[in-house]
Amino acid sequence: MSTPIIFESEYRCCLIVWEHEPLKSAKLAELCKEQLGWARTTTYTVLKRLSDRGVLQNKNTMVTSLISKEQAQVSEVNGLIEKKFEGNVPAFMAAFVNGRKLKKEEADALRAIIDSAKE
């Protein structure tokens, strides 16, 4: 199943959820107002939209995520590879690694990702 699209400003909202979940929707509204300057109603609109899309879940005013931050990030990167590298992962990796020094743990993490990549 492909990960649903999350737009930029929605992503900021998700970041707050990922950091604090599970949390009350009222608390989420409060945090969004504090950090993003959103009106309470705006937060509820976005929350509703993300729930409809299956990114978040609002059960009895308790907000949890259905998609993890990692999933979202992977989906985003895949989109980038599709768009800019015509789906050519090695070309992407070459461009990514090129011109920057990788720490050992970063290289390990990359290797792990590549290893876990299946058909």
């Binding site: 930029e8 400003s9 993003l36 300057g37 959103w38």
Partner: peptide, 15 residues
């Protein structure tokens, strides 16, 4: 622009 997010100071990003 109500779903815009703050960048810095009085600058906000909106899609």
């Amino acid at each position: 622009v109500r779903e815009s997010i703050p960048l810095k100071d009085n600058i906000r990003l909106s899609e």
